[in-house]
Design a binder for these strands. Structure first.
Lengths: 195, 195
DNA sequence: AGGATAAATGAATTATGATTCAAAAATAAT
DNA sequence: ATTATTTTTGAATCATAATTCATTTATCCT
């Protein structure tokens, strides 16, 4: 019998990240993804139900990784809340520094995912948010974070700021070094922008 | 001769904002936009070249307004840089408070616009950015803003944070009041999150 | 009241690209 | 070397919805 060679599922996912980043989900053609992955169009359907399932898997893997990392971070007792938030910021920059195209997909294509509540990406995303808010709440209860900060509002602001930075950086990497962005985020959330 | 009644172009734009917000640009059907506007499918094409031109016009109007306002703000000599930034934040919240659907379109659909450099929305966007960076640079040169802040990085972070907040608020307005978001943005950028 | 003109309609056309599936290719087993 | 089984291919099918345009409608003008 014929036997599978290589890891075509992973090849498809890598190719899809590139193509989605370049063209966006709706303008991305299965044909182009297949070509980029070095396989035939029809083969994509041996590994994924349809185009949306490819996007879903990308987000499932990504949120799965993010959740795993934040969860481990949250269990460390040697770090205070601010340190943890800094590590979280580094986590985002580190993941996307390696894969700028993934940043573009992450920021722009989540809106095209199905939102059925048995989708794994949603589960991981919820768990991530839970841990993120726990981290902040801990900072407030231990007295290192200003209790006037609303946890939800800060989450939106930080995550939104990071997303937009990463998207812009990924689209024009020469314009600004990712480490300048990283340092500025930390500076702004810690001290604000006043002298 | 037959004569135009009402303002169908405006009706189409209003309808399109609703439909784009609900379904996203690519899943939005011209038929649905027309129906929402109370006209026939074909009539949309009497006012716009195609679907993309409708989205373009929405962004042209929006960035046009944003530019007009920031430009007036920047000319005021009675406000220091921090005050101006606060007014700018209020500007965003005020515009989108009136039209939550517009916030959703603003955040999620800019990626589907054409980027031909003679598009007016691009021009307005560039002018807006120019004025925004001028505002920050002025804050640094007059000594109210920390010179370690990178202007570009701060712009990304603030704009990204605002966008994500507004998008989430617009999609679930009961979850969190827009004024809590507004106050938190101001608090965070001014003082940071430490106690 | 009838003609001229512009606006509006919506069914027919058309383009695109996702998905399917019959056929071909590869290799393990005998 | 032949067969059985599984993988892979890519051209044909199919669905969708954007766009067009022949026809209809409305109202101004004389």
């Amino acid at each position: 019998m014929r036997v599978k060679e290589g890891n075509k599922e992973a090849d498809i996912l890598d190719a899809a990240i590139k193509v989605f980043a370049k063209s966006g989900f709706h303008n991305a053609k299965i044909y182009t993804i297949a070509e980029t992955a070095g396989i035939a169009t029809g083969s994509v359907y041996l590994y994924f139900r349809n185009k949306e399932a490819v996007l879903n898997k990308i987000f499932e893997n990504l949120w799965g990784q993010l959740y795993k990392e934040i969860s481990e971070l949250n269990q460390r007792s040697d770090l205070n809340a601010i340190d943890k938030i800094y590590y979280l910021i580094d986590l985002f920059f580190d993941i996307f520094f390696e894969k700028p195209e993934l940043a573009i997909v992450f920021v722009n294509e989540q809106t095209n995912l199905s939102h059925a509540k048995d989708d794994l990406w949603i589960r991981y995303n919820e768990l991530f948010i839970e841990d993120g808010e726990k981290m902040l709440a801990e900072g407030i209860s231990t007295g290192v974070i200003n209790p006037n900060i609303n946890v939800r509002a800060f989450r939106y602001f930080l995550l939104g700021g990071l997303r937009y930075m990463l998207d812009n950086w990924a689209k024009d990497q020469k314009a600004l070094s990712i480490n300048v962005l990283r340092q500025n985020v930390k500076l702004i959330i810690k001290k604000g922008i006043l002298v």
